[in-house]
C-alpha cells in the first residue's frame, strides 16, 4: 500500500495484473497453506480415520478387519468402561467449578494487593510453567504413607492415623484432582486478572459515587462484565479435565489408573487399550466417545453461557 502511494498514478489499465484483493488473498492462502496442510495431515486425517478404525479389529500387525459395531457393543457392555466414564466426569464436574472459584477469588484479591504484587503473581504462575509429570511425582511423594510422605509424617507425628491418599478407592481421585487444579491455577489467575483489568474503572467510580457496596459491585458489575473471560476459562478448563492424563499416569504408574480403576480417566484407558494391549480398533472407539463428549460439553457450555 505504501509503495503505490509513492509512485505516480498509472493510467494504463493493468489487465493481466491481479487485483489487490486477489493478490492479498493469494498471499494469505500462501502463508496459510503450510499450517492447513500440516493440520490436515497430522490432525484432521487421523481424526477422521479414527472413526473408520473404530469399526475394525486391528492389532497393528495384520490389516484391519471390519467388524461393524462390535467394538462399541463390547465397550458399552464393559463395567470398567463405565467406571472410567464416571471418573472422567468426576474430574470435570468437581475440577472445573472448584478451579474457577479458587482462581477467581485469588485473582480478585490479588488485583487489590499492591504490596509484592508481581512477586505473588509469579508465585501463583510458577506451577503452570513446571512439567506436569515432574509435579505429579513430587505430589506422589507428598501423598506417600509415613515415613516417606510429608503430609502423613506430620499426621503421624501428631499421633494421628494416616490418610491413604493414593491407596484409597475413595480419596485417590480427589487427591489427584487437587494437584491438577493447583497446576492449572496460575494460568486461570492470569486470565482472570487480565479480564478484571479490562473492566473500565469509570463503572466502579460511578458505583462508588452512588454508594453501592462491594458485594453489589462484584455481583452487578464485575461478574457480568467478566463473562467472556469466564466462558473462555470454563470451556478451556473443562477440556483440560476431560483429557486429564499426565497427573494420573505419573501418580499411579505402578497400577495405572488404580487402585481398582478408581482414578482412571478415559484418555488413560485409550492409551492402555492402544499401546499396551494393541487393540487399535477398540481404542479408536473409545476415542470417538471422548471426541463426542468433548464436543457436546463444549457446545453445551457455549450455549448456556451465550450472550443473551
Amino acid at each position: 500500500m505504501a509503495t503505490t502511494d509513492t509512485h505516480p498514478p498509472d493510467d494504463q489499465p493493468a489487465a493481466p495484473r491481479l487485483s489487490m484483493r486477489v493478490r492479498r488473498a493469494l498471499w494469505v492462502w500462501g502463508f496459510l497453506a503450510l499450517p492447513v496442510l500440516f493440520y490436515s495431515v497430522i490432525r484432521f486425517y487421523p481424526t477422521l480415520d479414527a472413526f473408520r478404525l473404530s469399526f475394525t479389529e486391528w492389532n497393528l500387525m495384520r490389516p484391519p478387519k471390519f467388524i461393524g459395531l462390535e467394538n462399541y457393543r463390547e465397550m458399552f457392555a464393559d463395567e470398567d468402561f463405565w467406571q472410567v466414564f464416571r471418573n472422567t466426569f468426576a474430574y470435570l464436574i468437581m475440577g472445573t467449578p472448584i478451579s474457577l472459584v479458587v482462581s477467581f477469588t485469588i485473582a480478585y484479591f490479588l488485583d487489590k494487593v499492591r504490596f509484592a504484587h508481581n512477586f505473588l503473581r509469579a508465585l501463583y504462575f510458577l506451577p503452570f510453567l513446571t512439567t506436569a509429570s515432574a509435579m505429579a511425582w513430587v505430589w506422589r511423594w507428598f501423598y506417600q504413607p509415613a515415613p516417606t510422605g510429608i503430609i502423613n509424617s506430620v499426621l503421624s507425628q501428631m499421633g494421628m492415623g494416616q490418610m491413604d491418599f493414593l491407596r484409597s478407592t475413595t480419596w485417590a481421585l480427589p487427591s489427584i484432582m487437587v494437584t491438577a487444579i493447583w497446576a492449572g491455577l496460575g494460568f486461570q489467575i492470569i486470565i482472570f486478572m487480565a479480564g478484571l483489568r479490562a473492566i473500565p474503572t469509570t463503572y466502579y467510580e460511578a458505583a462508588r459515587i452512588d454508594g453501592v457496596g462491594d458485594w453489589a459491585i462484584l455481583r452487578k458489575i464485575t461478574l457480568p462484565l467478566l463473562k467472556p473471560t469466564t466462558v473462555f476459562l470454563v470451556v478451556f478448563s473443562s477440556i483440560g479435565f476431560l483429557r486429564i492424563f499426565d497427573q494420573v499416569y505419573n501418580m499411579t504408574n505402578n497400577d495405572p489408573g488404580g487402585p481398582l480403576n478408581s482414578t482412571k480417566p478415559l484418555v488413560l484407558m485409550i492409551y492402555q487399550t492402544a499401546f499396551s494391549s494393541f487393540q487399535m480398533g477398540a481404542a479408536a472407539a473409545q476415542t470417538v466417545v471422548l471426541f463426542t463428549i468433548l464436543l457436546i460439553v463444549s457446545l453445551l457450555q457455549l450455549w448456556v453461557l451465550r450472550e443473551r
Binding site: 497400577d255 481398582l260 492402555q272 499396551s276
Partner: peptide, 20 residues
C-alpha cells in the same frame, strides 16, 4: 498373552481384598 493386563488382574484381585 497380554502381560500388563494379566498383571493388572492379579493386582486388582488383592486390592479388592485389601481395600474393599
Amino acid at each position: 498373552y497380554d502381560e500388563a493386563a494379566q498383571r493388572q488382574v492379579i493386582m486388582d484381585m488383592t486390592n479388592r481384598i485389601f481395600l474393599e
